Computed example of a mutant assay.
Amino acid sequence: MLRVADFIDALNRGLALVLRWFAIAMVLIQFGIVIGRYVFGVNSIWVQESVLYLHGALFMLAGGYTLLVDRHVRVDIFYAKVSGAARRRIDIAGHVLLLLPAMAALGWWSWPSVRNAWKILEGPISVGGIEAVFLLKSLIPAFCLLIALQSIAILLRLLAGKTRA
């Protein structure tokens, strides 16, 4: 059980190592857009959309890592004031009753849109933009999968009586 959890953790950690470069790329591209527009009077919809694509990929694909390192949003009305055993029960209930069903629902309801986007290879958002909206929409099920996998890894550790990796 713990080997599976370790594999999922490694997957999300490895993905995070790649995705952190997306933030730097976004800053550099946006800087280039500003310089191009205001200094040279040059503008490109394709380049502007590349920032949107990088932003979407960064935040959607880093969700599993965020869950892994416990930096997600937590409503801790009760959580902060209870014992370790109660926190463990709250975590298990949260993953089983809230997080996993929410990811299943989001994946289920977004799938027709993603499937149709791939079927027609959905084109750019704007004229002259990146011709890969189907890739952008594919981030939704990828997000659901990465969050669900990380949730399962955390559940495996909780059920084994371990704390986070």
Results as ranks from 00 to 15, higher is better:
residue 64 G to R: 07
residue 38 Y to A: 13
residue 37 R to L: 15
residue 43 N to V: 13
residue 31 F to A: 15
residue 26 M to I: 12
residue 13 R to V: 14
residue 160 A to C: 04
residue 1 M to E: 08
residue 120 I to S: 02
residue 103 M to G: 03
residue 162 K to A: 11
residue 164 R to E: 12
residue 43 N to I: 09
residue 141 P to R: 10
residue 106 L to I: 03
residue 11 L to F: 14
residue 67 L to I: 03
residue 119 K to H: 07
residue 5 A to S: 12
residue 110 S to D: 06
residue 39 V to G: 09
residue 126 S to D: 06
residue 36 G to T: 04
residue 50 S to H: 04
residue 64 G to Q: 00
residue 106 L to D: 01
residue 102 A to M: 02
residue 92 I to K: 06
residue 27 V to H: 03
residue 122 E to T: 08
residue 2 L to H: 09
residue 60 M to K: 11
residue 146 L to C: 07
residue 163 T to I: 14
residue 64 G to V: 06
residue 151 S to R: 07
residue 129 G to H: 00
residue 76 D to E: 07
residue 2 L to I: 15
residue 43 N to S: 15
residue 90 I to P: 04
residue 35 I to Y: 15
residue 79 Y to W: 02
residue 123 G to S: 06
residue 123 G to A: 04
residue 99 L to T: 09
residue 97 L to I: 02
residue 70 D to E: 11
residue 82 V to L: 09
residue 5 A to E: 13
residue 129 G to T: 02
residue 131 E to M: 05
residue 98 L to P: 04
residue 162 K to S: 03
residue 165 A to N: 08
residue 10 A to F: 15
residue 11 L to I: 10
residue 121 L to M: 10
residue 27 V to D: 06
residue 158 L to W: 11
residue 147 I to A: 08
residue 42 V to W: 13
residue 154 I to G: 00
residue 62 A to L: 15
residue 9 D to K: 01
residue 132 A to P: 03
residue 22 F to Q: 11
residue 87 R to P: 04
residue 135 L to W: 02
residue 153 A to C: 03
residue 111 W to P: 00
residue 149 L to H: 02
residue 148 A to G: 08
residue 54 L to E: 11
residue 18 V to P: 12
residue 2 L to F: 11
residue 64 G to S: 04
residue 139 L to F: 00
residue 49 E to R: 12
residue 96 V to H: 01
residue 61 L to N: 05
residue 108 W to F: 02
residue 158 L to P: 08
residue 17 L to D: 15
residue 108 W to T: 10
residue 146 L to H: 04
residue 68 L to H: 10
residue 29 I to L: 14
residue 21 W to N: 06
residue 96 V to Q: 07
residue 144 C to S: 08
residue 93 A to Q: 10
residue 161 G to H: 05
residue 163 T to M: 13
residue 35 I to E: 07
residue 150 Q to I: 13
residue 148 A to I: 09
residue 95 H to K: 07
residue 58 L to F: 14
residue 35 I to P: 11
residue 9 D to W: 07
residue 95 H to R: 10
residue 156 L to S: 00
residue 59 F to Q: 11
residue 147 I to S: 07
residue 69 V to F: 12
residue 135 L to M: 01
residue 156 L to N: 05
residue 105 A to G: 12
residue 41 G to V: 12
residue 6 D to C: 09
residue 11 L to T: 12
